[in-house]
Design a protein around this nucleic acid. Structure first.
Lengths: 292, 292
DNA sequence: TCACTCCATCAGGATATCGGATCGTTTGAT
DNA sequence: ATCAAACGATCCGATATCCTGATGGAGTGA
């Protein structure tokens, strides 16, 4: 006794149920009438149930057949979903995801992992530079989805999180006490002008201890307690700590993490990636939910 | 190119994914190693995707394989659900459903129809007599589920609806104005003593115009406007109407529609039937929902 | 380096499935 | 009442599919 249903037979079954005639169903399926008839017979024998009422012209479902019909449709739908998911071109390709390097953690790795699980045939390239570079990438079509750190949320952007910019340094570091204050920033870091003008306004002398292109240099310098840096409160790496300066340093402005989506044929997958990002940041994503 | 997945192959696929080895999976499936190996090959060829990573000892899923694994489990689960639903003895048998004749409408036909759709292999016998007879049927195991009309809700019963007992008569009938008041009731009708004592208390003379075993006789007499009857407000048939007596007749007591479930091996299906009854009466059925 | 394990592949045979033809039944028109 | 058309079940021969058992090659640990 076969324990497994044959999807082909279920297709014939639903076709016959729809048409009410074996011959018509067979024509629609590009099969012979005899083939379809045999499939129905096998199905009935396997389940040991009469599925059709053959009295009279044509062929009508029995109560058992009605029950199976619902299940058969679900089965076929699932089969087809698997098929498109695994083979359809729509679900393969490449996506470029731009994220400022300082907010890659903690959420982005999780998002990438989940997305890869859902769309294994899509290769996601993570591009982590600075907000300004990312925005130009998006405009030129060199990125499909970007996150940014900005003071405002311009039109076309979607805010994921609003967080405070805070001073950070080495664990139990003392560098923040020295004057002139030693800073370490990448050249294009968007926080750099914010920090500099805040210090100028507060009348605190400062100097750029490291003025590099490389994130590594900055990290190393801060780790060695030779300079301090600033970071969004929600994304401080574990090997640094927020400086408890007790008012000795100026407060920094609030910063928003924004998201921008590119348009185009890849939009459905971009939306899906964006949804995962929203979930990671704990944003409801109301529209998407409402649509389902 | 096959558009339909083979459940057998999916079974092998999940077994291999679980075991991590083709040989072990084959043993579990009572198949040869080569058979399983070829099934995997066919799956990969059909989907045109590598599902396993064969480098090294054993065999591990690729990202595509992981995606398929989730789907495969759903597919197999659905297949097995269909199989048990269509062939398992658990879902065939007979059920006796006892309902007082005067509340068969409007809900019972709907319930029976839905239940038959869900369990075509279960034959439901509808037994409609009087509340007292139904309760004794249930106690003697001659009924699996009964509804009753009673003033109270005894322990072991569940109230479905509380409704007023009202006077009914023929459409635009005048019979309620005559004295002595002409009544038509079946001999065992549970409403009969209620009505009689209400009339006695109000000092209204009455006589039993029809005192029959047959519902038909009662209906015919009332339809002919020769007598009046009483009925639960929520279940007045369309060919009768509630008498607008303006206080000339006494108010009748409130009546509850209760439900009793028999215990035993058929309990799961009885529960399901009870759930449909609750839904029809608009009762939440909290416990059942909480359990899911 | 040498067994040992594990998987892919090949050849042969059993089984399943399909297409074409035939037969019996129902149905509606004459 | 009769008959032709429509329809589904079934039989037969051809083919395709799938399984078993055997063989070979690749990786692995002593």
């Amino acid at each position: 006794m076969p324990r497994n249903l044959d999807i082909t037979a279920l297709r014939s079954f639903t076709a016959v149920a729809d048409e009410g005639k074996v011959t018509a169903a067979a024509a629609r399926l590009n099969l012979t009438q005899s083939a379809v008839s045999m499939q129905l017979k096998r199905l009935e024998e396997a389940l040991n149930q009469p599925l059709f009422d053959r009295s009279g012209r044509g062929i009508a479902l029995t109560a058992e057949g009605e029950l199976l019909l619902g299940y058969a449709r679900r089965m076929i739908a699932l089969n087809d979903e698997i098929w498109t998911r695994m083979t359809d071109e729509q679900f393969e390709g490449e996506l470029t995801f731009g994220v400022p390097h300082d907010i890659v953690y903690p959420h982005v790795p999780v998002v990438l992992r989940r997305f890869a699980r859902e769309f294994p045939r899509v290769k996601v390239t993570l591009n982590s530079t600075f907000t300004t570079a990312l925005k130009s990438d998006l405009e030129r079509g060199r990125a499909d989805l970007i996150l940014t750190t900005e003071k405002e949320t311009p039109p076309g952007a979607e805010v994921l999180e609003q967080s405070q910019l805070v001073w950070i340094g080495a664990l139990q570091g003392e560098a923040w006490k020295s004057r002139p204050l030693k800073l370490a920033y990448e050249r294009a870091c968007i926080f750099r002008p914010i920090v500099q003008s805040a210090l100028d306004d507060a009348g605190i002398p400062w100097e750029m201890a490291v003025d590099s292109e490389m994130t590594r240099s900055v990290e190393a310098t801060v780790s060695a307690d030779l300079a301090i840096h600033s970071q969004i409160e929600a994304a401080v790496p574990p090997y640094f700590e927020v400086i408890d300066h007790g008012g000795a340093l100026p407060s920094l402005s609030a910063i928003r993490i924004n998201m921008y989506l590119a348009d185009g044929p890849k939009r459905p997958m971009i939306e899906r990636l964006a949804t995962l990002v929203r979930e990671a940041y704990g944003v409801s994503g109301g529209m998407k939910l409402a649509a389902e």
